[in-house]
Design a protein around this nucleic acid. Structure first.
Length: 937
DNA sequence: CAGTGAGCGAGCTTCCGCTTGACTT
C-alpha cells in the first residue's frame, strides 16, 4: 500500500494553475485546486446548522458568536461538499500535504481552512512562489515554511468585521426604508461616492460665458491655418469654466477675470476683423513622457471600459478565458510587478520589432500606488517568454482586442520615453491677446506601442501630432475666420464603471476579485442604474446614504477601510490582537450593536424615506412602488410617481408641480372616438404612457390599450395621432418576394413590423431611418418594412433530429434536438442535455423522462440562488397585485384567476425584459441585445 | 402589460473575498 502512495498532495487555488504546476512537478505529485475558499460563514438561513437554529441564540443569523470571542461559525457550502470529499480522498494516498495557495491574506486563510477541514495525519507544509516557472516552483517546494497564523487571524478579523457590519446594518435598513436592502463596508462607500456626485449635480447651477475663436494663418511663408483662442482683453484674463462657482452659476467671489456677454463678444469680433494681427510671443517647452505601469485588474477594467467599451464583468470574463488558455498571467491582481521572464521577453520584443532606439536603456520596474496592495501575483501580461501578438495567436473578437491591449501595455513598459515639444504662441490684435498651442512629437518612443486612454473622449490623445506652423515674433498674421462662441459650464460628470473602479482602488476599497461584482451588487440592490455608461443613483440610494451618513458617519467614511487595513496589518505582524478590535467595533456603548439598537427606536421610518430637496416644495418619498412626490394641499395629500427615467439631479420644482397636477387631473381625454363613441385617454402606467379607449367597466372586457411609441411626446399627443395608434395593427401590404402580408403594430416591446412570423422592432427611439427619411409605425411603407425585415434575425423553428414519442403523463411530444451544447431532449419548456455516454439513436422514453425530471428539479433549486434581482422586483409586483386582485377578484372569472396563477414565472421574466428594454433605451451597445430578446419572446 | 403610496403576518432578506462550473440551445 505505502509504496503506491504519491509524494504529496499539492493544493492551489485555481485549476489552470494546478495544471501548469502539475506539469513542472511530474507524476510524484498530485496537484489539485481548492477553487478559492472551501468554508465560510453561513450565507443565509438555509446554511445555518439546525442545531444552532434551534438554540435560538441571538447571534445565530450572524454566524459569529458575539458572546464568545467572536468565534466564527464556519460551514462548508453545498457547492463545495463534493470538492472537499475529493480532496479528502486524494489526501489518503499522499505522504504529505503541501499548501500552495496564494501568498496573501486570503490565500493563507484558505490554506488554514484546508488543514482544518481535511485534518491531515501526514506532515503539512506551506509553499509560496511569486511566478509560475519551473525553476521558481522547484525552488519553492524545496523551501517550505509553516502556516502564518497571524496572517490567518488578520483574514478572519476582516471576514468577521464585514459580516458584523453587513448583517447588523442591513436589517436596520429593512425596517426603516425597504426590505431586501443592504449595507456593507465596500458597497455603502461606493454608493455614497456616487450619491455625493449626484447631489453636486443637483446643486449645480450652470453659467454661460462668451469668447472668440479665430482661424489664423501667417501672411508669408507657410500659411497653414491654425486655431487660436481669445485669452485677454485690455490685459484682463477672460473667464473660463473654472472661474465659475458651481452652486450659483456666477463668477466666483473676488475673481478678477473678464466675463464677456454676447454683445461685447460680438463687438470685439467686429472690431478685430478690421485690425492687424501680429505674433508677439513664441514659447517652446520640451517634455518627456513615460509609459504607464503594466495592467492590474483595476487598470485593465478601466482601460477596457474606456477604449473597448467593455463592462468590468465582460473584461473579467474574457480575461479568464485568456488565462485559462495560458495566454495571459493571472487576471486578478493588484501588483504592477513584472517578473524577470516578462521583462526579458518584452525587451527582446521591443528590440526585434522597433529597434534598439526604442528600447529603454535600463529595465523599468514599477511600484504599486494602491493603498493596500497585497501583491500575491504578477501584473497582467502576456504569459510565457514569447510575447506573441494577438494575430500570431489567431485571436478574434473581444479576446483579440483585450489581449492586444495587454500586449501593447506590457511591451510599452520597456520602451524609451517619448519626447515632445509644446509650443505656445501669443498673437496680439488691438487690445486683445489670442493664444495657440501646438504639440510636436520629437521622438515617439513608447507611443509607438501604447497610449493610455482618457475618460474624456474629447481630450486629444498624447501621441497625436498637432503642431503649429513655424511662427516667429513680429510675424504678420491674417485672420481667416473669427467667431463669437457661447459656452456653458457643465456639472461634474457622473461616475462610469471605469471611474468608480479607479476611485475605489485609489481609496483602497474593494479587491481585484470584487471590483466587477461591486458594480453588480449596487445595481441588483436597486441603488444604482446604468444609463449608457453613466452610473445613476436611485432615490433609494439617496435615502440609504443619508441614513448611514447621519447615524454611522465613521462607517461610511472613505477612510474606514484604510484604517481597518492598518489594524489588520498589525494583527498580521503580531503587533495587535483581533479581539479588542472587534470588541470596540461591535460591543460597548459606541459599538455597532448598541448603536443599531438605539437607532432602531429613534429613527422615524417615514422620515427616513422622505427626501426634502432645496427649491422643491414637494417632498420626494421612497415608496414600495418606487419614488414619488408628495405634497400637502390643505387637508389633501397629493402624490405623483416619479418616472424611472428621471435621475435625482433632474428634479426641479416645475417637474414636481407638473407631475402632481397631471396626476390630480386624472386621465385626460383627448376627445371622443368618432366611431366607437368612447373617450380616448392618455394614461401613464408602469410601462410608460399609453392610450386607452373608453373606461374600465366592471364585468366587461378590458378597454383597448396601446403603448405610445418613444418618438411621440405623450403630453402633446393629438387626438388624430391617438386614433391612428388605436387602429394598429395595420396592413402595409404584401411582401414583394413572398407575397405574404406585412403588418405594422405595437406590442409588448413597442412598435414592430411583422412578416411571416418574423418580427422586427423599431429602434430605441421608435423610429427607423431609411434612405435619409425617418419612419415610424404609423407611416412605414413597404420598401422600408422590407429593409427592416432584412435586418431581423430569422429564427426558423428548430426541427428535431428524432422524435421519441408522447410523454406518459401529458401526452406531449418528447423529442431530441441538436443544440450548441450537444444533443438534448425537449419536453414542453424543459430541455435536458443527453449524457455523453448515450447515443442519440438509442435513447428510450424512460431514460428521457429521468433526465427531464432531474433537470426540472435542478431548475427549481437554481431559481432561489440566481434570480435575486428578479425576485425582488417580482416580490414588489406581487405585493402590488395583492390589493387589486383581491378587490378585482369578483370581476374576474375563475378561469382567468387560475390562468394567472399558473404562469407566474413567465410573466415575471417578460416583465423584467420589458423593463430592461425601456431602461436601456439610451444605451448604444445594448440595442442589439434588446432586439435579440424581443425576438425570443 | 397598465394606475398603487396601507396592513393580517411565518420566515426571510443581508456582508466581502477567494475561485470555477453550470449553463444559455
Amino acid at each position: 500500500m505505502a509504496a503506491k502512495k504519491i509524494k504529496a498532495l499539492v493544493i492551489v487555488e485555481s485549476p489552470a494553475k494546478a495544471r501548469k504546476i502539475s506539469g513542472y512537478l511530474g507524476k510524484d505529485y498530485h496537484v489539485m485546486a481548492s477553487m478559492g475558499h472551501i468554508r465560510d460563514l453561513p450565507a443565509n438561513a438555509s446554511e445555518i446548522p439546525a442545531q444552532i437554529k434551534k438554540e435560538k441564540k441571538s447571534w445565530a443569523s450572524l454566524g459569529v458568536n458575539t458572546e464568545e470571542d467572536f468565534d466564527p461559525l464556519y460551514v462548508i457550502p453545498k457547492t463545495k461538499k463534493k470538492l472537499v470529499k475529493e480532496l479528502k480522498e486524494a489526501l489518503k494516498n499522499s505522504e504529505q500535504l503541501i499548501l500552495a495557495t496564494d501568498e496573501d491574506r486570503e490565500g493563507e486563510s484558505i490554506g488554514w481552512h484546508l488543514t482544518e477541514v481535511l485534518k491531515p495525519k501526514v506532515p503539512v507544509k506551506r509553499m509560496v512562489f511569486s511566478e509560475i516557472t519551473k525553476k521558481a516552483i522547484l525552488e519553492a517546494i524545496e523551501n517550505p515554511r509553516e502556516l502564518d497564523l497571524d496572517l490567518v487571524a488578520a483574514q478572519e478579523t476582516r471576514r468577521v468585521l464585514d459580516r458584523l457590519y453587513g448583517y447588523t446594518l442591513s436589517p436596520l435598513l429593512w425596517k426603516k426604508i425597504a426590505r431586501g436592502l443592504s449595507a456593507g463596508r465596500v458597497q455603502s462607500v461606493a454608493v455614497r461616492v456616487i450619491v455625493l456626485r449626484e447631489l453636486e449635480r443637483l446643486a449645480f447651477r450652470s453659467g454661460t460665458y462668451w469668447d472668440l475663436k479665430a482661424v489664423l494663418g501667417a501672411k508669408t511663408g507657410n500659411q497653414t491655418s491654425f486655431d487660436s483662442q481669445l485669452i485677454t482683453v485690455d490685459g484682463k484674463r477672460l473667464a473660463t469654466g473654472k472661474d465659475f462657482d458651481e452652486s450659483t452659476g456666477k463668477l466666483k467671489e473676488g475673481s478678477k477675470v473678464l466675463l464677456l456677454k454676447e454683445e461685447e463678444a460680438k463687438k470685439i469680433q467686429a472690431d478685430l476683423l478690421k485690425k492687424d494681427w501680429t505674433v508677439t510671443k513664441v514659447e517652446k517647452k520640451a517634455q518627456k513622457r513615460n509609459p504607464s505601469a503594466p495592467f492590474t485588474t483595476s487598470t485593465l477594467q478601466q482601460e477596457a471600459n474606456r477604449k473597448l467599451g467593455m463592462t468590468a464583468r465582460d473584461t473579467m470574463r474574457v480575461a479568464q478565458r485568456l488565462y485559462e488558455d495560458g495566454l495571459i498571467t493571472y487576471m486578478r491582481t493588484d501588483s504592477v510587478n513584472l517578473s524577470g521572464e516578462a521583462v526579458t521577453a518584452a525587451r527582446k520584443c521591443v528590440e526585434g520589432r522597433y529597434g534598439k532606439d526604442y528600447l529603454h536603456p535600463t529595465v523599468r520596474q514599477f511600484s504599486s500606488k494602491s493603498k493596500n496592495a497585497q501583491e500575491a501575483h504578477e501584473a497582467i501580461r502576456p504569459a510565457g517568454t514569447e510575447m506573441k501578438t494577438a494575430e500570431e495567436l489567431n485571436l478574434t473578437g473581444q479576446q483579440n482586442r483585450l489581449y492586444s491591449m495587454i500586449w501593447k501595455r506590457t511591451v510599452a513598459t520597456q520602451m524609451a520615453e517619448a519626447r515632445l515639444t509644446f509650443q505656445s504662441v501669443t498673437i496680439t490684435s488691438g487690445n486683445c491677446e489670442f493664444r495657440s498651442t501646438g504639440k510636436h512629437v520629437d521622438f515617439p518612443g513608447f507611443f509607438r506601442a501604447y497610449v493610455e486612454g482618457n475618460d474624456d473622449p474629447e481630450a486629444a490623445l498624447d501621441d497625436q501630432e498637432s503642431a503649429l506652423p513655424p511662427l516667429n515674433e513680429n510675424d504678420q498674421i491674417s485672420c481667416k475666420e473669427l467667431d463669437a462662441i457661447i459656452h456653458e459650464t457643465k456639472p461634474p460628470a457622473r461616475y462610469t464603471e471605469a471611474s468608480i473602479v479607479r476611485k475605489l482602488e485609489a481609496e483602497g476599497v474593494g479587491r481585484p476579485s470584487t471590483y466587477a461584482s461591486i458594480i453588480g451588487t449596487i445595481q441588483d440592490r436597486g441603488y444604482v442604474r446604468k444609463a449608457g455608461s453613466q452610473l445613476i443613483p436611485t432615490f433609494t440610494a439617496l435615502a440609504v446614504s443619508r441614513l448611514l451618513e447621519e447615524h454611522f458617519p465613521n462607517l461610511v467614511d472613505l477612510n474606514f477601510t484604510a484604517k481597518m487595513e492598518q489594524t489588520l496589518d498589525d494583527i498580521a505582524t503580531g503587533d495587535a490582537e483581533r479581539l479588542p478590535y472587534l470588541n470596540k467595533f461591535y460591543s460597548g456603548a459606541e459599538g455597532i450593536s448598541e448603536q443599531v439598537k438605539k437607532h432602531e427606536e429613534t429613527i422615524d421610518p417615514r422620515k427616513a424615506c422622505t427626501l426634502n430637496i432645496d427649491g422643491i416644495e414637494a417632498s420626494v418619498r421612497v415608496g414600495r412602488y418606487g419614488p414619488y412626490f408628495e405634497k400637502k394641499k390643505g387637508e389633501e395629500n397629493l402624490t405623483a410617481s416619479i418616472p424611472d427615467s428621471i435621475a435625482p439631479a433632474d428634479l426641479s420644482n416645475d417637474l414636481a408641480e407638473k407631475l402632481i397636477e397631471e396626476k390630480q387631473k386624472g386621465p385626460q381625454s383627448l376627445g371622443m372616438h368618432p366611431e366607437e363613441g368612447l373617450p380616448v385617454f392618455v394614461m401613464n402606467g408602469p410601462f410608460g404612457p399609453y392610450i386607452q379607449l373608453g373606461e374600465v367597466v366592471e364585468d366587461g372586457p378590458k378597454p383597448k390599450r396601446v403603448g405610445i411609441p418613444k418618438n411621440y411626446d405623450y403630453s402633446e399627443l393629438t387626438l388624430n395621432q391617438a386614433l391612428s395608434l388605436l387602429t394598429l395593427p395595420r396592413r402595409i401590404g404584401h411582401h414583394p418576394v413572398t407575397n405574404k402580408v406585412v403588418n405594422a403594430g405595437i406590442g409588448r416591446f413597442g412598435p414592430y413590423v411583422l412578416h411571416d412570423k418574423v418580427y422586427k422592432s423599431f429602434g430605441k427611439e421608435g423610429t427607423f431611418e431609411h434612405e435619409g427619411k425617418v419612419y415610424d409605425v404609423l407611416n412605414v411603407d413597404m420598401d422600408t418594412a422590407v429593409e427592416m425585415l432584412k435586418q431581423a434575425k430569422r429564427r426558423s423553428a428548430p426541427t428535431p433530429i428524432r422524435e421519441i414519442g408522447e410523454h406518459p403523463e401529458d401526452k406531449e411530444m418528447v423529442a431530441i434536438f441538436d443544440g450548441r451544447y450537444g444533443p438534448y431532449v425537449k419536453h414542453g419548456k424543459i430541455n435536458a442535455t443527453i449524457p455523453k455516454d448515450h447515443e442519440v439513436e438509442s435513447v428510450t422514453m424512460d431514460e428521457a423522462v429521468v433526465w427531464l425530471e432531474a433537470k426540472a428539479a435542478k431548475m427549481g433549486t437554481k431559481k432561489t440562488t440566481k434570480k435575486k434581482a428578479a425576485k425582488k422586483k417580482a416580490a414588489k409586483k406581487k405585493a402590488a397585485k395583492k390589493k387589486t386582485t383581491k378587490k378585482a377578484a369578483a370581476k374576474k372569472t375563475p378561469e382567468k384567476k387560475a390562468a394567472k396563477k399558473k404562469a407566474p414565472a413567465k410573466k415575471k421574466a417578460a416583465k423584467k425584459t420589458a423593463k430592461k428594454t425601456a431602461e436601456k433605451s439610451t444605451e448604444k451597445t445594448t440595442t442589439k441585445k434588446t432586439a435579440e430578446k424581443t425576438e425570443k419572446e
